[in-house]
């Protein structure tokens, strides 16, 4: 009897074994296979271009990518019809950025404003990740600027080193949704020489920028930089920089149109030397054209 019951149990178990993997549950099993969790995913494309408007976004050129940026900033809109609301009077900046890796970029640029030459480096050292990763990306940016104007003949002995200024900043960015991204950007400006005793060599700013996508090719952008209190009493001429703009993407180009109270298009100028007042119409119309070329290999 004992043998018989063992046999029955065995047969039952064998059939149970078949039943467990029976076709009835096959479709569900197939779907289960895809549900297994994957690791955190990098969140990409918080902004369309390397700059929100004036200031750096977290985006860098991809590996082997050369980004050619031509930027124009016209004269004051308040100059009126005589100067065609500023359009007669353009400053420009030409820049080249190159991606050494997908997260590290180096660049050079020349601005007609102050005949300024710059070299810069940008490194996104932490990526925002969904599914348990970092909630923000962190990007460091450093730029060295050389003022190229002739020294005034006022008998003061200036040196080449006095032409140099630096800006260091960190872009803390988060893409909250496919449409909305926000960045906080603390910056430190250091000028080796300032042109007035009432100006501090070191200026700190706290900035914020956003983009909101209206559709896949169009976004509204804005940025604001608050001048932190300085050790030397405030220069009454200086203002916080406020800019509003539109990004328009067309295949290989990103066009950025904007209105801003900052004239210069390099960091020292718009962060620490903005003089225009929005309420007085001291506004400048400008645009950036970003054109990307793949010149090196991605691998």
């Amino acid at each position: 009897m004992k043998h018989v019951s063992f046999l029955r149990a065995s047969v039952a178990l064998v059939f149970a074994g078949f039943a467990l993997a029976s076709p009835l549950s096959a479709q569900d099993d197939l779907m289960d296979f895809f549900d297994e969790p994957t690791g955190p995913q990098v969140v990409t494309s918080a902004f369309k271009a390397g700059r929100i408007i004036n200031v750096q976004s977290p985006e860098t050129s991809g590996k082997g990518e050369m980004n050619f940026i031509i930027a124009h900033r016209f004269g004051r809109i308040s100059d009126g019809a005589y100067a065609l609301w500023g359009l007669d009077n353009a400053q420009m900046r030409m820049g080249l950025d190159y991606g050494l890796t997908d997260r590290l970029q180096v660049g050079v640029a020349r601005s007609s404003f102050g005949k300024t030459l710059e070299v810069n480096a940008k490194w996104r050292f932490l990526e925002q990740k969904s599914g348990g990763g970092s909630p923000v990306s962190l990007t460091g940016y450093s730029v060295l600027m050389r003022d190229g104007m002739r020294f005034p003949e006022d008998g003061i002995g200036r040196l080449g080193i006095h032409r140099i200024s630096y800006v260091h900043q960190v872009v803390v960015a988060r893409k909250f949704s496919p449409e909305f991204s926000l960045a906080l950007i603390p910056s430190l400006v250091h000028r080796n020489l300032v042109d007035q005793p009432a100006r501090a060599n070191d200026v700190g700013t706290l900035g914020a920028g956003f983009r909101y996508k209206l559709n896949n090719r169009l976004s509204v952008n804005g940025e604001y930089h608050y001048l932190l209190p300085r050790p030397i009493p405030d220069d009454p001429e200086l203002r916080n920089s406020l800019s509003l703009g539109l990004d328009i993407e067309t295949g290989g180009h990103v066009f950025q149109l904007h209105i801003t109270n900052s004239r210069g298009m390099f960091e020292r100028s718009f962060l620490s030397e903005t003089a225009g007042r929005w309420q007085d119409g001291d506004l400048y119309f400008g645009f950036n054209i970003n054109r990307v070329f793949q010149v090196g290999s991605r691998r």
């Binding site: 990409t44 990518e65 990307v292």
Partner: peptide, 8 residues
């Protein structure tokens, strides 16, 4: 993609 911009 061979170009980062294409991927974006």
């Amino acid at each position: 993609f061979p170009k980062a911009l294409m991927e974006e």
